[in-house]
Design a protein around this nucleic acid. Structure first.
Lengths: 238, 238
DNA sequence: AGAATATTCAATCAAGCGTTTGATTGAGTC
DNA sequence: GACTCAATCAAACGCTTGATTGAATATTCT
């Protein structure tokens, strides 16, 4: 038989070091999300990836560089898909209401399987919580644009909602999303497995309509919101 | 003058090492909440507390023990105050609606100045995010009881709300609360300082009425919530 | 007073960290 | 076949980590 070149068909030429690079990235996103960024060592990551302990530094310069690469890889995909879905949102018979579409377009790319899915959401939750300057910058760099765009779209879908309410409700949307996957297992304990936030479909199935309903709710009177006395009922100590 | 004993009046006898102990606890809750548990060393903590580097191990046995002591100190106060406020909730003219009272009773002790306040909330957010086995146990140990009690009270205040909705909305309440203080600064960036979640009064002033409105909202139809097709609008890839 | 106890301290430990090094590999180029 | 060069490797670097020690010091009890 002649020595025919394997896999010569138009597939990726694939530079040599790329495989290791990818294995390290895969191991990193998983281990970072499981144990936190300070909670896992480069040695653990490279060992998990079946690479030499110097490989991470060789390919990414430093642990910080590795984190940036991990974040970049998934975040850019999420942001891009969000924007694509948002561009596709429109009112039409047979489709859900526009508001639900927008909310789903924001939540789904980050919570479903692609782009690291639940694993990467957990990492994002961790990074928000650890919230060093570096992580804040990464977050701002990759998500500020798309978040602003969604805020704008939500505002257009709800023209009568004051900006103050819009911002706070978006804040609660973010909180619900992050808490849902950053912290799987908490509510199951409280409720005896009644609802399962770690199942993306179940979570989205509840969060999207519930959040839409929340956004549609009456504006909160500013007077009540700013007066500390009205709902800050209990002033027991200090 | 006779050498009269200072402060002999029935005040605390105060064992000798207590002062150092307290300074270490204070420094620990602050530094843990600022840099994460893995992000700060015992040396940093004891230095900040003006104590010898062995003091933390002497007083708390280990870093883990120190974290437990920190958590215990603030969490028990929060849980106790929550329950006291809950016991005081009742319908009466001149008071806010019962639902608002209950939500405020749950949120206020953890978010206001006492019991470590915002600092400790940030630490709780971090611990939830880092979510090792130890932190999960601590959390469950100190908060499960009071959380269950509130879930029950909310259920009684909303007898027509299905349990499924109740649980998910409580989950969103927790998410909003944790995200609000675990992550100060994120929404300000997006909204140009329009709303300030790091101000506990402003945050409570919005969250309490908004969450009450959310709890009062119509139940989400189970069929919609479970069908992946209805609100999971976008199924682009994978 | 003196004995007993509780706390502080400087010094030290082994282990683990992120990173760097210099040699080695092996596929492409001339 | 000599050369290049990105990639890998074992080994070590300097440093920080949580923890421990034993002597020194302060406090309390008798």
């Amino acid at each position: 038989m002649t020595a025919l070149p394997l896999e010569d068909a138009g597939v990726a030429p694939e530079p040599r070091g790329e495989a290791t690079r990818q294995r390290i990235l895969d191991a990193a996103v998983r281990l970072f999300s499981e144990h936190g960024i300070n909670g896992v060592s480069l040695r653990t990551i490279t060992a998990e990836a079946g690479a030499n302990s110097a490989a991470a530094n060789y390919h990414f310069g430093s642990k910080k560089g590795l984190l940036e690469a991990v974040f970049e890889r998934h975040a850019s995909g999420i942001a891009a898909e969000r924007e694509a879905l948002l561009a596709d949102c429109h009112d039409a018979p047979g489709r859900p209401p526009l508001l639900e579409q927008i909310i789903a377009a924001f939540l789904e790319p980050g919570m479903r399987g692609a782009h690291g899915g639940a694993t990467f959401v957990r990492l994002r939750g961790r990074m928000l919580a650890e919230s060093s300057d570096q992580t804040r910058e990464l977050y701002a760099l990759h998500f500020n644009d798309s978040s602003s765009r969604f805020l704008e779209a939500l505002g257009q879908a709800l023209p009568d909602l004051p900006a103050h309410d819009l911002h706070w409700r978006f804040h609660m949307l973010l909180g619900s999303m992050v808490y849902t996957l950053a912290n799987p297992g908490r509510i199951q304990i409280l409720t005896g497995q009644a609802c399962d936030p770690s199942d993306p479909d179940a979570a989205l199935g509840y969060l999207v309509p519930m959040l839409a309903q929340m956004f549609r709710g009456e504006p909160i009177p500013r007077s009540a919101a700013t007066s500390t006395g009205m709902y800050a009922i209990h002033q027991t100590n200090r």
